[in-house]
Design a protein around this nucleic acid. Structure first.
Lengths: 110, 110
DNA sequence: ATTCTTTATCGTAATATTGCAATATTAAAA
DNA sequence: TTTTAATATTGCAATATTACGATAAAGAAT
């Protein structure tokens, strides 16, 4: 088939998967890191930071935005993108949850 | 094209992206969660837990394993899979790093 | 008004992912 | 040894992703 059977999984599993998927490309990791590095939100010049053509960067930005990992507002003829903290929190909570699970288990095997 | 230009990004960016990509499917999130839930490593019956055919589950397990998120050892005629903590730690560290970056920024915009 | 600059969208080619039936593999059980 | 049970691999069809040239859109600058 090719289309993933997301309807068979829980809402939360689908959410975590979609966030992970959005981060699942080095360009998008680089974008997130760049957004952290720069002092303010980026208005312009993300394209110059990446080894990709402008339409490709725009597409990656759109994916990050539609996953909710970044947000953007129009600022003159530029767009100001920055990180959406609350979404990153959701993601980080998952790892806390995972770590808690691991502690509970106390590594009884492997 | 279609192939991502991973050679243009840093080792770390590629690592984070590959871990995220491995988690970027609800079935694989479900597998990780199941591995946490069960008391010991799973020996069998992951297939019964998922709404997917056995070969599909096997493929997802292979992807998680090749990303380093789980490890498996042969145990009779079954395979015992469990979570690879050190890899999850790498992933979690990324979010800590992200959160640190956000604190530094103190939300000066958006 | 025209040009410049920046970002978005469209169209399309190359490649990757997803899912499963069929089949193989491997070791325990009979 | 033959059967049974569990997992892996192969092969293939359907779909999704990635990348970019060409083009559009929209505000800023001249």
């Amino acid at each position: 088939m090719g289309a993933s059977k997301s309807e068979h999984f829980s809402e939360k599993q689908n959410l975590i998967a979609s966030l992970a998927k959005a981060l699942g490309h080095p360009a998008r990791v680089a974008i997130i890191e760049y957004l952290l590095k720069v002092d303010t939100c980026i208005c312009g010049d993300i394209v110059n930071e990446l080894p990709l053509a402008q339409p490709t960067v725009s597409q990656h930005l759109r994916e990050l935005k539609s996953a909710g990992l970044i947000k953007g507002s129009i600022e003159g003829n530029a767009i100001c993108y920055c990180i959406e903290e609350s979404t990153l929190d959701v993601f980080k909570q998952f790892f806390t949850h995972v770590e808690f699970g691991l502690d509970e288990k106390k590594k009884r095997c492997c």
